[in-house]
């Protein structure tokens, strides 16, 4: 089986990974023996792995004591994580309630019940307390923002 440069270049990586069938590996070897360009390409590709391992080996040698002590480091980290203060489970489960309540209050304040009126978005929240004569004691909190005054809260007989 003979091989040209195109076929050889397609097979060099497979050879580097040990995935080439024996007959193709023999054919590739035959081509590399007579083709300097493909031979140099194969040398460069094949050098990548050993070089990377060599670089890694140097770095590992520099850090050997720390690598040897890895379990000590890991165990200390596990201990720290165990001791870190944690929120009680009930706090995590019910933490959303105050936020939801606050959103509901804001929605009631800024969005009137009548849907044909646009939402009320005051730029100022100038609230005045006014008395309105009636048979019952009434206290009205009135917003005097940029729009017409609107009653936003009515307290009758000390009840809202």
């Amino acid at each position: 089986m003979t091989m040209n440069c195109v076929a050889a270049l397609e097979r060099i990586e497979a050879k580097a990974d040990g995935l080439l069938p024996p007959e193709e590996e023999a054919a590739l070897a035959g081509h590399l023996a007579v083709c300097p360009a493909c031979s140099a390409e194969e040398a460069a590709i094949s050098a990548t792995g050993p070089l990377l391992r060599a670089v890694t080996g140097i770095r590992a040698n520099e850090k050997t004591p720390a690598i040897d002590a890895m379990w000590t480091r890991v165990r200390a980290g596990i201990g720290e994580a165990r001791e870190a203060p944690r929120r009680p489970l009930w706090a995590a489960r019910w933490a959303w309630i105050p936020a939801a309540f606050a959103l509901a209050v804001l929605a009631l304040l800024f969005y009137p019940a009548r849907t044909d009126r646009p939402p009320f978005h005051p730029r100022t929240f100038d609230v005045a307390v006014e008395d309105v004569e009636s048979d019952v004691a009434t206290v009205a909190l009135v917003d005097k923002g940029e729009d017409l005054p609107r009653v936003i809260w009515i307290i009758e007989d000390a009840k809202t």
Binding site: P36, A37, S39, A40, E41, A43, A44, A47, P50, L51, A54, V55, G57, I58, N61
Partner: peptide, 21 residues
């Protein structure tokens, strides 16, 4: 195309050519 070249293959070889690493 490069001519024949012997790349370092071991950490010991590479120490002599740290720039390559």
């Amino acid at each position: 195309p490069p001519d024949a070249f012997a790349y370092p293959r071991t950490p010991e070889d590479l120490v002599r050519d740290r720039e390559l690493g």
